[in-house]
């Protein structure tokens, strides 16, 4: 279970760095050594939705503060 959590955290971290557009050689090779791309794609879509929701929340906070 712990290993699984660790993997997911690594995938999330690498997708977040993808959003920022910065990644180092080492973790990129490790990312791309993994067998199937699907976990990355799912994490990517989920995090994209979270990004959209985060932006909408920021807008509401900004509007609420007036």
């Amino acid at each position: 279970m712990k290993q699984m959590l660790l993997d997911w955290w690594r995938i999330v971290r690498s997708v977040l760095s993808a959003f920022l557009g910065v990644q180092n050689e080492h973790s990129r090779q490790r990312d791309f050594a993994s067998d199937s791309p699907w976990p990355f794609i799912i994490a990517g879509v989920v995090l994209a939705l979270i990004l959209v929701i985060a932006l909408v929340l920021i807008v509401h906070v900004v509007l609420a503060s007036g």
Partner: peptide, 9 residues
Amino acid sequence: SSMVYATAS
């Protein structure tokens, strides 16, 4: 790798 990730982003 940053170039590839930036393109995806």
